[in-house]
Design a protein around this nucleic acid. Structure first.
Length: 271
DNA sequence: ACATTGACCTGGGAGC
DNA sequence: TGCTCCCAGGTCAATG
């Protein structure tokens, strides 16, 4: 389920049920995700109080006084809040049970997700230390995008999906933002004008804000903390709409492959 | 330093 | 119905 708006939606859904609660138990049913979940996780956090949960890019960080859990949903991960005695489903790999009787349940069919423990400063962790700025902060600006794209031979879409340049943007929102900005996804990053960068930075912020407001995009398996699906899908302008009419000029939307990911765009509106 | 590709997984849908 | 093939929201690690 996972680009920035979906992770943000998951965060908002789970936070009220678990922050300030003490961890009662950790159940590892299938600890082999992208990397093995540390076996000693129960000993590390049982009895400790969850102080806060924050998002960084597509990662969620669960802070304790003595360290933090880093969680990534991969391609198919999902978090639910359930009462501790609710029957498990297929691919419910981990439960973190809290003293209020609620469990945070991590389901991930494809197992590209991750759950790791970081001592000390979590932002110094290998997975987080190289991340670029959050796209919804002032640091991510037209000027920043201009500087980052100078000298880059990769396509602009590849750059948007590069977490070292900007965090949290994936295949859906890269396509949507490029459409909104009227930029061909295959355009060499270095060839973007200053005006392109301005339009693109604005488009990224606009599409992410709107998606968060709508509660993320549901393709097939994303649901919020209560199992309720997101509703943004109907409003996607280009993603998944290959062969259909461009919402702006009615030209037929085309698919190309960029960096092994399918990319939908309008050949007339996006130059 | 940057760009590209392979690899890791399961499940759903299309086509035969 | 059932099989095979293709595709899917990510991104690290290895290679050029």
């Amino acid at each position: 389920m996972p680009e920035l708006p979906e992770v943000e939606t998951a965060l908002r859904g789970i936070k009220p049920y678990i922050v300030g609660e003490k961890v009662k138990d950790v159940i590892l049913r299938f600890p082999r995700l992208r990397w093995p979940i540390p076996e000693q996780l129960p000993q590390l956090i049982v009895g400790h109080t969850l102080k806060s949960v924050v998002r960084r890019g597509k990662y969620l960080i669960f802070r304790f006084d003595h360290g933090a859990l880093i969680l990534h949903l991969g391609m198919s991960g999902n978090l639910r809040i359930v009462n501790h005695d609710v029957a498990v489903k297929k691919h419910d790999h981990v439960d973190i049970t809290f003293s209020n009787g609620k469990s945070l349940r991590f389901n991930d069919p494809r197992r590209f997700g991750a759950l790791l423990w970081a001592e000390n400063d979590v932002h110094e962790h290998k997975l987080l230390s190289q991340l670029g700025p959050e796209p919804l902060t002032a640091t991510f600006s037209s000027e920043y995008l201009w500087k980052q794209t100078r000298g880059r031979a990769a396509s602009i879409k590849t750059c948007l999906m590069n977490g070292r340049i900007v965090a949290g943007i994936g295949n859906i929102y890269a396509a949507e933002a490029l459409f909104l900005a009227g930029i061909n996804p295959k355009k060499t990053a270095n060839k973007l004008s200053k005006l392109d960068c301005q339009h693109l930075a604005e488009a990224i912020k606009a599409v992410l804000k709107k998606a968060i407001k709508k509660g993320g995009t549901t393709l097939r398996d994303f649901a919020d903390a209560h199992g309720k699906p997101g509703y943004f899908k109907l409003e996607l302008l280009v993603y998944g709409r290959q062969g259909q009419a461009c919402p702006r000029c009615a030209n037929k939307l085309k698919t190309i492959v960029i960096a092994q990911r399918s990319t939908v765009f309008c050949t007339k509106c996006q130059k």
